[in-house]
């Protein structure tokens, strides 16, 4: 097929790295050089020891040819990362604000520009490792609250999102299919449109001999408590399932005591 199966669910780390390489970064040219026009933007004339901002992929090429030094971004310093690590530990329900591509960019720079770092590199590496582990644990804990309506994950970086993407999408999809399968019959009884072609004969003629829960109520049930709970500011963003008709929901009771791992303050 045109697109191999593994690419259909999510992006590969290399592709994410590709995206990260388009981000701009500051460099310190060591020699002067003429600029040129590129497809994406003009490469400016480089003057020695005058800082310029260029995309990372370009900076890496120049670095490899020994034509420049890379200015390590502010967030990749020991003090900043240590502060973020503290934040992560103190807020077990929130993700600290890190740059969108922090893991990718740090890997790229640590691999190619070791000499440009001010702080000891091994310390930075271990800090990054620690940060990643803490955040990963938090993410895994939060995934336990998955439901088929929606999920909120503020503060994660692109790679971390990409990591859990296939899992989240598959489970959410399956949950949704489960929920929809029991709703279709009800929709057809009330003459609504369904997107999945179902056999109309079935739902109308099914006997009551064997049926789990009979759908008695009509369509417009509003979950008063739930909707009020959701739109308020400091409330849980973890929804229980919202089918249109609900006898009782097992998740209703749980929602109050939820971990609120994704709650935003």
């Amino acid at each position: 097929m045109s697109l191999p199966k593994q690419l259909r669910d999510t992006f590969t780390p290399k592709e994410i790295s590709f995206l990260a390489e388009q981000e701009p970064i500051m460099i310190l040219p060591r020699y002067s050089m003429h600029g040129t026009t590129l497809i994406s933007a003009k490469l400016p004339n480089l003057r020695a020891l005058h800082r310029e901002s260029i995309p990372i992929w370009l900076a890496l090429i120049l670095k490899r040819q020994d034509k420049c030094n890379i200015v390590i971004p502010d967030w990749l310093q020991l003090s900043y990362l240590q502060q973020k690590y503290e934040d992560e530990i103190q807020n077990p329900n929130k993700f600290s604000k890190l740059p969108w591509h922090w893991i990718t960019i740090s890997k790229l720079l640590l691999d190619s520009a070791v000499d440009d770092f001010m702080d000891p590199v091994y310390e930075i590496r271990s800090l990054i490792q620690d940060l990643r582990e803490v955040r990963l644990l938090k993410a895994r804990r939060g995934l336990k609250e998955l439901n088929e309506v929606y999920l909120q994950l503020d503060g994660l970086s692109l790679i971390e999102i990409n990591e859990v993407r296939p899992f989240v999408l598959k489970v959410m999809n399956q949950l949704r299919k489960l929920k929809e399968s029991s709703k279709i019959g009800e929709q057809e009884m009330y003459g609504d449109d369904t997107e999945i072609g179902g056999d109309t004969v079935m739902s109308q003629d099914v006997d009551d001999d064997y049926a789990g829960v009979q759908i008695n109520d009509s369509v417009g049930i509003n979950h008063g408590s739930n909707s009020a709970g959701r739109s308020g500011a400091g409330n849980s963003y973890l929804n229980d399932s919202h089918t249109r008709v609900q006898g009782d929901s097992m998740e209703d009771d749980d929602s109050d005591s939820d971990d609120d791992i994704y709650r935003k303050d």
Binding site: K179, S181, S182, G185, G212, I215, Q246
Partner: peptide, 10 residues
């Protein structure tokens, strides 16, 4: 569940 509208099961 589609056949029997069994929300409890779901």
């Amino acid at each position: 569940a589609n056949m029997y509208n069994d929300t409890e099961l779901v």
